[in-house]
Write a protein that binds this DNA or RNA. Structure first.
Length: 104
DNA sequence: GGAATGACGATAA
DNA sequence: ATTATCGCCATTC
C-alpha cells in the first residue's frame, strides 16, 4: 500500500472526528463538516475520505439520505451488517443510527 | 493565481 | 422510485 500524500490540517481534523464515531452509528458527510466548525462542506469531507480514509472506519460516514460511500457500497454494507448498524434495506436508517459528537 | 476537481446536498421534474 | 442541475469550497493541476 503506497503511502498517501501529505495530509492537510483539514484532512487530519476530518480523520480525527471520523475515528471516534461509535460502532453501529454513522455520520453524514455534511454532519462531519458541520461538527468540525471550520469551513469546508460535504464535498471536502468526501475528498478527504477518498484520499486518506483508509485508516479510519470510513464505512461509518454515509450520505445524508443514508446511502453508503460511493464506490464501496458492497464492502460498507457488509461491515454495517456485522456491527449491527440500523439498516433499511441497503440504506442506513438515519433516524436511528445518526450520531453527533458530545459537545464537551 | 485561475480553472478544474469531486466517498456531497438540496431541490425540481 | 430515478435523473438532472445547481451550489458549495478545500485541494489539486
Amino acid at each position: 500500500m503506497p503511502a498517501a500524500g501529505l495530509p492537510t490540517p483539514y484532512a487530519e481534523a476530518v480523520l480525527d472526528l471520523v475515528a471516534r464515531i461509535p460502532r453501529g452509528r454513522v455520520m453524514a458527510y455534511g454532519d462531519v463538516a458541520a461538527a468540525l466548525q471550520q469551513g469546508g462542506g460535504p464535498r471536502q469531507v468526501g475528498t478527504v475520505m477518498a484520499r486518506f480514509g483508509s485508516g479510519v472506519p470510513w464505512h461509518r460516514v454515509v450520505k445524508a439520505d443514508g446511502g453508503l460511500a460511493a464506490g464501496h457500497e458492497a464492502e460498507a454494507l457488509r461491515r454495517h451488517r456485522r456491527e449491527g448498524t440500523p439498516l433499511r434495506g441497503s440504506r442506513v436508517d438515519m433516524r436511528a443510527a445518526r450520531w453527533m459528537p458530545d459537545p464537551s
